[in-house]
Design a protein around this nucleic acid. Structure first.
Lengths: 131, 131, 131, 131
DNA sequence: GTGGTCTAGACCACC
DNA sequence: GTGGTCTAGACCACG
């Protein structure tokens, strides 16, 4: 199974955190479905060109959050995520991101309309790029 | 001179960075005007209940960015900020914040309209709270 | 022969250990009697939906403890268990379990009476559910 | 600050888990109070004769559970645990331990009174030893 | 000084 | 083969 994860070498964001966030998104958004067997930590570490320890940490953190289930000698699986949880998480995550952005706008005395215009512009760009 | 800075003890954001960001905003948005003499490092550290080293770092970083100017034995002043700088900084900062928020939305498969609605809602709340 | 064993997928307890403990209890408590022919490794693995290796390990461990006896080409039988063994095992097992529970109570500064009350409550519940 | 933790070299229980459990108990039971600065990971590792990594893991796990708060460059502190949480946690932990013990009793066909007698005996012993 | 991240590599237990 | 634990040691960022 191939998992699309982009690592940004230059970012200040820790490796393990980049992987965690992206993998979490893939699971939450349903791209990787319940029951899927993820790559073994060694295999994944090979693909991502990082240490096994780093992958292990990612798997373990997500297991602690209840998104993964792992059994020794067998592997690591995506565990069941209730529909409600999924939706709730999505909204929570997105809301947090938007709120912090708006706060930045406020702190810099950006007007409401200025902010909204800039936002719409960015949204269009990003979603177009996506297609 | 009293400088309104809020420190969030529990945030993962480093102390020096919290202070830097807020002080920068205050200067760029014109709340603290050119030529103002900032508190001494010790005084400020006392107010913020943090180490002098932390304040020193803040002053130094902002001096490197050209926002502050230090005169030996006299103190640290807000230096002149051109209109261009101010506008540029505002747009750059806000744009960055918005872009990262939109990316989060994308990563979680949030639709364009969903995102926009949530954004407008948040903007209204925040700006209303501000008044 | 059908053997009632419950596997808890989500437990941290290794598969082989869950099976071993339960099978042991069944033999020692006399639910499975002396001389009984157990299912073949493959058959049992099929029922439990686990690897043959796992069942093999269970049979072997219990054979080492003298609870099972394997005859080449015939199968695995429950061997004779003396009354002494049975009683001894019961007391030892239960005592160990209770001791560790009491230690938890102690470590958390739970008072003697508090602990006893909670215990009686649980015992009643469990034994009632059993009937 | 000296923290009383007993490590059992021979136990199958992982090192980090032994430390975690005991430290957790000390915090939950109020032996170590809110705001206390714990030993640095290096110092603690020295005392416990284990790797810094192991201590780090303990601190991090407990931080994830909300029992500790750590700030880079400053140290690791015991964070506020609401009275309710504390009580709830105690009961939950103890209850779990007792339940699993009673289940063992059941699985071995131990009678209700037999179990209760054994329990009372053990409790008396342990609590006497404690004094 | 503090914690935060990451590495390479070892050894074990489980399936 | 899988994951689980632990080590020693490096380098960085924060105060």
């Amino acid at each position: 199974m191939w998992i699309p994860i982009q690592i940004n070498e230059n970012s200040a964001e820790p490796l393990y955190h980049q992987i965690e966030t992206q993998l979490k998104s893939l699971i939450i958004s349903g791209v990787i479905t319940e029951g899927t067997l993820l790559p073994s930590i060694r295999e994944f570490a090979g693909e991502l060109k990082c240490s096994v320890i780093t992958v292990r940490r990612v798997y373990q953190d997500l297991e602690n959050e209840g998104l993964l289930r792992t059994r020794q000698g067998t592997g690591t699986f995506v565990s069941h995520v209730g529909e409600g949880t999924m939706e709730g998480y999505k909204r929570e995550t997105v809301r947090k991101a938007l709120e912090s952005a708006v706060e930045v706008g406020l702190s810099v005395q950006c007007s409401e309309t200025e902010l909204a215009e800039l936002f719409m512009e960015i949204v269009k760009d990003k979603y177009k790029a996506q297609e």
